[in-house]
Amino acid sequence: MTETTISTLKTLSASAPLPLTPPKPRRLRRHATVIISVAILTLLCAAALLADVLSPHRPETINLRVRLTAPLTLPEHPLGTDATGRDILSRILHGGRVSLTVGLLATAIGLVLGTLLGIISGYFRGWADEIIMYLVDVQFALPFVLLAVAVSLVLGRSLAVLIGLAALSTWSLYARVIRGEVLSLREREFVIAARSLGASDAYIMFHHLLPNLAGPLLVLGTLSIGRIILLESGLSFLGIGIQPPTPSWGGMINEGRDYLSSAWWLSTLPGIVLMTLVLVIGTLGDWLRDRLDVKVM
């Protein structure tokens, strides 16, 4: 893709603050939304971390005597059970662990890779830039879900493969945004000054450019965690994510499809938790983007 698409990808922000009219009166309400979001996020993360302690049952334990129990009917299964009598609450808690692990690790890997390539691309220009941007173009052109499926056929299904694939899906966006930022940063006075003082390329890249990329990286990272969690659930839904019986939200939603008419809670409960998590992360990402005045997708 070309400069034009890069510039539009960068304008994909939801609400750039207007320089002329500072939105003063809305601050309080916005803060309330952010505080609530942080609280919910903390709660969900804590629940996933403490899944072993909080779960009333093992997530894989089958108990056919209580199969398809509705929520709030049995005290030992507060959110009900699935078709083989596994406890929904325990499965949601453990499934959250998978979603958050994949979201955080894949974002971290993708962020490091994309930032490194983006800085190299924007700083050195020339053939390095051409090659990296070519790889970005190819990556963007590939239909990711199908590619992920093909790769998982070759490498099998495991958490590591899932994280690797999710990381692979994000690096290109980071590389492109970071490259754009570096292109403008490298012409700034402090970089020229550092260069004229004899600083090495590596020193300039890591001591002058990288700190100035903190804002975009923070926003990109936050928004991408939510996107990767959605991606993971989609892959698990198609049956190429986490291997059962390990619970994952996407997998649970998929299993519940066969019982939609008789047991509504199987699909809807994990779906609601998934949506809440992604919504909260999205809200925080939007807020950070507006606060730091960063333009990213």
């Binding site: 939510g226 959605l230 939603i253 939609l260 699909s267 998934l274 949506m275 919504l279 999205g282």
Partner: peptide, 18 residues
């Protein structure tokens, strides 16, 4: 629209079916 962006397509589909 924020909610629309946060909902996985398969879950929207399942809710609509339901």
């Amino acid at each position: 629209t924020l909610a629309g962006q946060s909902l996985p397509a398969f879950f929207i589909g399942i809710l609509l079916i339901l």
